[in-house]
Amino acid sequence: MGRRASLIAVTAVLLLSGCHHGDAETAHASAAALLAEAPLASAGFPPSAATARTQLAKLSVEWGKNWETYKRENFGRYWSDETDAVGGRNGCDTRDDVLRRDLSELREGDRNPCVVVSGTLHDPYTGRELPYYYRRASQIQTDHVVALGAAWRAGAYAWTPERRLAYANDLDVLLAVDKQTNYEKSSKTADKWKPPVKSYWCEYARRYTGIKAKYGLSVTPPEKEALREMLGTCPA
């Protein structure tokens, strides 16, 4: 039985059976253990500064194409369990995975360990501490580091729908961040937008470049120069 099927089966025990308290605790522990088996980051991602510089030098350099045909729906309408960082599935939708990975002081659901009940985000873009509570208004959003529109212009317009859906749900591409800052970033490329916290420029450029290399996306000349500048802030 795969991880997704196993998690669904264990969660069903919690939702559908009249189990005793001890049985529920055992089932929850089993589901949590299944989640723990699924890594939330690819090995070697984000790449080191040295690797990112090598990757950047190899990226295709060209101006964006087909920008006028971009639609959010081209990458799927909703979060899914389409892929995790190592290409498998764990039974949770992608947004839950991002929250479980990026929040501290994490509290997970009693019935469904996929659900994050509460936690705190140290926003990498602004440095702010942002609280999260399930089903309450939040200042936290899930950002595609290389935005979907930017990926479309850089080559994703030629992908299959399946590859675009996988990209939109790839944990390597995603970060939990401050909502207002994410609105300001929108689909801007690295030459048009940089994190307000300059100390994050190094990791941002490493992530951004790693995503471009992983998916074979191109960069524009100004975008490449901006990434080179940000990688220049990395410690020697």
Rank of each mutant, 00 (worst) to 15 (best):
M1A: 10
S6G: 13
V13R: 13
L14R: 11
S17C: 10
S17Q: 10
G22K: 15
G22M: 15
S30V: 14
A31Y: 01
P39N: 04
L40D: 14
A41Y: 11
S42I: 08
A43G: 14
A43E: 15
G44W: 06
A49N: 02
A52M: 09
A57S: 15
E62L: 13
W67S: 12
T69P: 09
F75H: 03
F75K: 02
R77N: 09
R77L: 13
Y78E: 15
S80M: 02
E82Y: 15
T83W: 04
G88M: 05
G88D: 10
N90E: 06
G91V: 04
R95V: 09
V98Y: 13
L99A: 03
R100S: 06
S104R: 15
S104Q: 15
L106K: 05
E108Y: 03
G109M: 08
G109C: 01
R111L: 13
N112L: 10
P113R: 08
C114Y: 00
V117N: 01
S118F: 02
S118K: 03
G119P: 00
H122S: 14
P124M: 08
G127T: 04
Y132N: 04
A137C: 12
T142W: 07
D143W: 05
A150Y: 01
A158I: 07
R163F: 01
L165T: 12
A168H: 02
V173H: 02
Y183P: 10
S187E: 09
D191Q: 05
R206L: 11
R207P: 00
G210N: 00
I211T: 00
K212S: 00
Y215M: 06
S218W: 04
T220E: 10
T233D: 04
C234P: 08
P235N: 08
